[in-house]
Design a protein around this nucleic acid. Structure first.
Lengths: 335, 335
DNA sequence: TTGTACTGCGAAAACGTATTCGGAGGAACG
DNA sequence: CGTTCCTCCGAATACGTTTTCGCAGTACAA
C-alpha cells in the first residue's frame, strides 16, 4: 500500500505538503500540487479511510438500521425501493452506507455502542421496531438520526402521508356509491393507528357508520389472515360492499378467499389495498390502492440526514411528509 | 469518548495492559483483567474501529456490490432474500456489511480503489453486471471475493442450480404430455445461457424439437415484453401448448395477455416461470415454477467469504451450487 | 534601511489502538 | 547463595493521516 510518505519521498517534499496538495489546500503552490497529484496517480495511491477517520473523527458513512425479526423486511418492495432511494442519494451526497448490528467482536452489544464503535456520521432507522428500548436509546444517543414512518424527539423524520392517502381512498370509495365499508387493520404500530384514525374520521365526516363487526384487527403482509377475515366478513347477515385491506399483499389473500366463495371482485365485492406495489398492479383485476412514494422517502431521508450532519447542533430536525397517489384500478365497482 | 488511556489512569496501570486485558491476552493476571473490564464497563468504554483498523489492517467488514443500473435491483424478492441471508450469516460470523460505491471524496473512482480505501476484508458481488470491466478488475484485485451466479478465476462462487432446475421443469412439462414447448429467454448473461442450454439439451434428450419461432429473446422482469411475446406465439399457425417464461414476474404479463386474447391458463395454454416468488404464489392459478433458494445462497456466500478471509492465501476457492425445488402449481394442464 | 505582509513549505504533534520487547519480581531448583 | 525460569506489567513504537504553527524567503511600502 502506497502512503503519502512514499509520495513525499518521490516528490522531494514533506508528507504534510502531500496531504495538503491532495486535499487542495490553498497554501501550496500550483506547481507542487500538480506534481504531487501526478505522482500519486502514477503510484496508484489510495487514501486510507481508517487513518483519515482517526484523525478527523468523521467517517462519511451512514449507519442503517433495518428491523430484524420482521416478517418480510427487505423483501417487501416498499422497503427495498426506499433503501434504493436512500442509498443512491446518500452516495451522491458523499456518504457510504453500512448496516447496523448489535454484535461487536463476538459479543452482543447495543445499537448505540455499535454506532459509537463505527463512528457513523448519521443514522437512518428505516423499519425497526420503534417500541424496542434499544432503538429508542439509539435515537436519543446524540448521533444525527432520521426515522422513517415514526417520530422521535430531536430526530428528523420522513413520513408517508397515510392520513391523506386513506382519506382520499375512503372518499373515492364513497363516491363510487359504497356505504358498507369494512376495514382490516395491520399490526399495531404508529402507521396502523394513523390509517385507522383517518379511516374512522373520514367515515364519520361522510356520515358512514362502521359497525364493530366491520372493524377487524389483522396483520400486515398476511394473505392467509386476510382470507380468513374476508370469509368472516362475507358470512355476516349484511356483508360489506367494500373491504379495505391493510396492504396490497393481504388483498391477494382476500381475492383468493372471494374466489373460493364464488364471489367475483368487483362484481360481488369491492376491495382496496395500500402500497401500490408494482407486481400486484400486474394482476387482474387491477387493484385500487394508494401508492406510496418509497423512493422519494428514501431520498428525503438521505437529504435530511446530510443536513443534520452538516449543520450539527444548529440543525432543527424536520418532519417531512411525502404524499402518495390514489391508483384507481378495477376493484371498486360503481354502485 | 472514553479511551483505553482514560481507563489506564483509573486503574493505575498502562494503556498497554488495558488493551491486553480487554482482548484477553494471556500475559495479564486474572485480577487485573477483571478490574480493567469492570472499569471499562462502568466508564462506558467503546473501542474505536478506525484506530483498531489502522493498527491491525483489518476491518471485519465485507463490501457488497449490487448492480446499479438494473431494472429491479434490490426490489426483487430473489435479491433481497439473498441479501438478507448474506447479512444475517455474515453478522453471525462477526462481519459487518457495507455497500461498495465508485465515489470517493466527491470524485468518481473505481470499485477497486473504493475497496482499498475502505480496506474491506472481503467482497461479495451479488448482482453486478459481470461484463463491466470495473467489476472484473475488482474480482481480480486480490481482495477475497465471492461472486453470485457467475464465476471468475480465483474467486469463490455461489451458483443457483439453473441447469438442474430447468431440466426438472422441462421433464415435468413433458411428463404432463406437452410436446410443443416455447421458451422466452431473459437478458443475455451467464444465467440465461445456462438455462437456455439446459432447455435445449433436455428437449433434445426427450426428442422434442423446438422450432425457431418457439425460441424468443426477451428480458427479465418485463411483463409487457412477455405479454407481447405471448401474443406473438399464440398467433402462430400451430401455437405452443406451454410457454416457459424467464421468470415469475414476466409470467404475469403472459397471463394478462392470454386473458386479453380470451385464453385461459391452463385450459388453453400452459405456462411456467422461474424463481418461486412468494407473492406470485399467492395468485390464481398458482404458478408452476422453480423456486430458488435465495436465502441459502446468501448464507453460503457469507460462509465462503469468511473462509477465504480466514485462510488467506491458502484458501482454495469453491464453487458452491445450490439446488432449487420444483413447485408443481396449477398452470400446466395434463394433456 | 527598516518594517510589514504575503507565499510556500516542513516539523511536529495528535488521533486510539495493538504489539514487541525488556525488565522487575518472585518462585523453584541445584 | 547463585542460577534459571516464569509471571506480570509498562515503555516505546507504529499504523497513515490531518492540522497547527513557525520559519524562510520574497515583495512591497515607508
Amino acid at each position: 500500500m502506497v502512503t503519502i510518505k512514499a509520495i513525499a519521498e518521490r516528490c522531494g517534499c514533506s508528507p504534510a505538503t502531500v496531504s495538503k496538495a491532495l486535499n487542495g489546500a490553498p497554501d501550496v503552490s500550483r506547481a507542487m500540487t500538480r506534481r504531487v497529484r501526478a505522482v500519486a496517480g502514477e503510484m496508484g495511491y489510495v487514501p486510507n479511510a481508517a487513518a483519515r477517520t482517526l484523525k478527523t473523527a468523521r467517517t462519511y458513512s451512514f449507519g442503517l438500521l433495518f428491523r430484524e425479526n420482521a416478517s418480510m423486511g427487505l423483501a417487501h418492495e416498499f422497503f427495498s425501493l426506499m433503501l434504493d432511494g436512500f442509498k443512491r442519494r446518500a452516495e451522491e451526497l458523499g456518504y457510504d452506507i453500512a448496516f447496523i448490528n448489535r454484535r461487536l467482536g463476538g459479543q452482543e452489544r447495543t445499537y448505540t455502542e455499535y454506532v459509537q464503535y463505527r463512528r457513523f456520521d448519521g443514522v437512518a432507522i428505516i423499519t425497526a421496531d420503534y417500541e424496542d428500548p434499544q432503538v429508542r436509546a439509539l435515537a436519543a444517543c446524540g448521533v444525527p438520526t432520521v426515522t422513517v414512518d415514526d417520530q422521535f424527539d430531536g430526530c428528523g423524520s420522513v413520513l408517508s402521508d397515510n392520513a391523506g392517502g386513506v382519506q382520499e381512498l375512503v372518499r373515492y370509495v364513497y363516491d363510487m356509491g359504497h356505504r358498507r365499508l369494512a376495514v382490516l387493520r395491520g399490526d399495531d404500530n404508529r402507521v396502523s393507528r394513523v390509517r385507522w384514525g383517518a379511516f374512522r374520521h373520514t367515515c364519520q365526516a361522510l356520515g358512514v357508520a362502521v359497525p364493530d363487526e366491520y372493524d377487524l384487527q389483522g396483520r400486515y403482509h398476511d394473505p392467509e389472515g386476510a382470507g380468513e377475515a374476508t370469509r368472516q366478513l362475507m358470512a355476516l347477515p349484511t356483508p360489506p360492499t367494500c373491504i379495505f385491506y391493510p396492504d396490497d399483499i393481504s388483498y391477494l389473500g382476500g381475492l383468493r378467499a372471494a374466489e373460493d366463495m364464488g364471489l367475483s371482485i368487483p362484481d360481488d365485492l369491492s376491495a382496496v389495498g395500500y402500497d401500490g406495489i408494482g407486481l400486484v398492479q400486474q394482476i387482474r383485476p387491477r387493484l385500487t390502492t394508494v401508492w406510496q412514494n418509497a423512493d422519494r422517502m428514501g431520498v428525503e431521508t438521505a437529504e435530511e440526514l446530510a443536513r443534520a450532519v452538516k449543520e450539527g447542533g444548529a440543525h432543527t430536525p424536520r418532519q417531512i411528509v411525502i404524499p402518495g397517489a390514489l391508483i384507481k384500478g378495477e376493484t371498486v365497482k360503481k354502485l
